[in-house]
Computed example of a mutant assay.
Amino acid sequence: MSTGDPSTTEIDTTLFITVSGPPGCGATTLCERLADAIGCPYVSGGDIFREIAEERDMNLNQLTAQAEASDEIDRALDQRLQQIAEKWGMANKPFILESRLAGWLAGERADLRIWLDAPENVRLDRIEDRIETEAEMRVREVSEAGRYNSYYEIDIDDREFYDLHINTARWSKGAVFELVRTGLEEYDPDIDEGAFSAPDVHL
């Protein structure tokens, strides 16, 4: 779990929020600021992936290689994320879940599903300080998309059930946060005419 900037404007909400997007989309930055502003915990798929690596006494590269070779790692990760979603979906307390599949795994339990994206060149610039090359990022995205489809029949490009879809290259980090903050503060369940149905994912 992570926290963000203590100076962030407070947000009064009890919503369970999912944040998803490809590498370099700005999900971590947004989640940290939201978690701090709301005063709630957030869990990311990256956190759980690191937990699994530690439990198996493996580094991240080793676990990634194993995930490429077998579905066992992906399924273990996704099952943990879905269990977390089930727990918080019944809690009536604010919570943020972040991963590529968070919106899918949380399904109808989530109150608000967010997809972040940015043009590939922008995302590549953002991950320059990470140990990942342009080719590796592209291969990983294609590989993950194939695995999601193979394991769960999930088309990661199907985003119609997301409530907010933001191109984070068009605004500053602070402005992206403000866009989402406004959405949360202006949300009124009494006038909500219904979210798009989220497909069921059977792990």
Rank of each mutant, 00 (worst) to 15 (best):
Q79T: 15
L81D: 01
W115I: 10
V176D: 00
N167G: 13
T28K: 13
V180A: 06
S20G: 11
D200E: 13
E98M: 12
A69P: 01
E108A: 15
Y148N: 02
D36S: 13
L101C: 12
A35H: 04
E141N: 03
E186W: 08
D129V: 03
S172Y: 04
D200H: 07
D125V: 02
W171F: 15
E128G: 00
C25D: 03
L30T: 14
R181N: 13
E193F: 09
I166C: 08
E10L: 03
L179Q: 11
D111Q: 04
L30P: 05
L101N: 01
R56M: 14
E120I: 09
C31G: 07
R56P: 02
L184I: 15
E72K: 03
D5E: 09
D12T: 14
E72A: 13
D163P: 06
N61H: 06
E153W: 00
S7I: 12
F16P: 04
G103T: 08
N149Y: 10
Y162R: 03
K87I: 12
I131Q: 14
V139K: 11
R109L: 10
G194C: 10
D125I: 06
D155S: 13
R140T: 10
I11Y: 15
D57N: 05
R170K: 15
Q79A: 14
E68Q: 13
G103S: 08
I154E: 07
I131D: 10
K87F: 08
E141V: 04
E98P: 07
A53I: 06
E86S: 13
K87V: 12
N61M: 03
P22T: 01
Y152T: 07
L77P: 03
A35R: 08
G107L: 11
G4M: 06
L203A: 04
M137E: 07
R33M: 15
I131C: 02
D200N: 02
E55K: 09
N92W: 07
S197L: 07
E178R: 15
I52W: 00
V201K: 03
R147I: 09
S44P: 09
D74N: 11
E32Q: 15
E185C: 12
E32R: 15
S7P: 03
G174A: 07
D157Q: 12
I52N: 02
V142E: 12
V122M: 09
E68N: 09
W104V: 05
A102M: 10
L97P: 00
G26S: 15
R138M: 07
A76F: 02
G4E: 04
R75S: 05
G194S: 00
T8F: 13
S197K: 09
L101Y: 02
R75M: 10
E186D: 04
E186A: 10
R130M: 05
G89R: 00
T64C: 13
